[in-house]
Amino acid sequence: MKGNRNLLMLQPSPYVIQVIGFCEEPPNSTVLTESCEKCADLNKILKRGQRSSSKRYSGQQRFEWATKIVGAFDYLHHGLGLPRLHCDLHFLPQAFNQFIVTKDHSLFMSDVDEIPQVDKKNGEYATCHREIGGIMKQPDFIPPEQRYTAEEYKNKEPCKPVDEKSDIWKILDITRKLMEVSKLEEFIMKELEIIHQKCKNLDPKLRPIARDVFIEYLKVLKEFQTRKFSKSKLTFNTQ
């Protein structure tokens, strides 16, 4: 039910799959979303591209998805009053599972079960669940403030408080993975090198806000368009 309620709370948004109907009869709830014929989560899409070159998407399409993901972070952090962070991003395949790609190649958040709110003024921070067994599959993907030692996990120490800046740490890794089979990877990484370095600051307070990262991504996307690449089908919103 929490996921359904979160999905409703995020409506309407160009970053979340659209809800067209809802019925709640405790303890059950049902959400009816827009038609998603031939939809697949982003992780499956990327796996298909690894198995067959004919199923790989263009470098521009992949960067459009990366930009849309950063836009989704911006929406979670700045579009709902108090910021929310995405706690279901423990390693890259799981992160990509949180987004679906429709048959027209549009990308949306679909799994929003764990998006806790942060209220820094009142000292209220989020506590994201640790990975099962305390094993971090991709430790570098997890920001330093969210990592646990084996001893900490064994001693069942309380979950560490984090804020939306933990999402910012993960942006570089998400984009690099999306672009790794593209000829545009070197160009993208060079254009965004400075903002990506800031995203990886060990001190979360010194990392940029999602809006600043999103603006840099949009600048690069616009450069694609001025170089006569095909127009993006994605909808972005910085309001």
Rank of each mutant, 00 (worst) to 15 (best):
G81W: 03
G81D: 02
P83F: 01
R84C: 07
H86G: 01
H86T: 00
L89T: 12
H90R: 12
L92V: 07
P93H: 13
P93R: 13
P93L: 14
Q94E: 15
Q94D: 10
A95D: 02
F96G: 01
N97S: 14
Q98R: 14
Q98Y: 05
F99M: 07
I100V: 15
V101W: 04
V101G: 02
T102V: 03
D104T: 12
D104H: 08
D104R: 10
D104N: 14
H105R: 12
L107T: 04
M109K: 05
M109A: 14
D111T: 10
D111E: 15
D111H: 13
V112Y: 05
V112G: 08
V112A: 08
D113G: 15
E114R: 12
E114M: 13
E114G: 03
P116A: 08
D119T: 04
D119W: 07
K120L: 09
K120Q: 10
G123N: 12
Y125M: 13
Y125D: 01
A126R: 07
A126Y: 05
A126H: 05
T127E: 10
T127F: 10
E131F: 08
G133A: 10
G133D: 05
G134R: 03
I135R: 09
M136N: 03
Q138V: 02
F141A: 06
F141K: 04
I142D: 00
I142R: 09
P143S: 09
P144Y: 08
E145H: 07
E145K: 05
A150R: 11
E151W: 04
E151L: 15
E151F: 02
E151H: 07
E151G: 00
E152V: 01
N155C: 09
N155S: 15
N155D: 15
N155I: 04
N155A: 15
K156N: 15
K160S: 01
K160D: 03
P161F: 09
V162A: 07
V162T: 11
K165T: 09
I168G: 00
I168Y: 03
I168Q: 00
W169Y: 09
W169P: 00
K170M: 09
K170G: 03
K170R: 15
I171M: 07
I171R: 01
L172E: 08
L172K: 06
I174T: 02
K177H: 11
E180N: 06
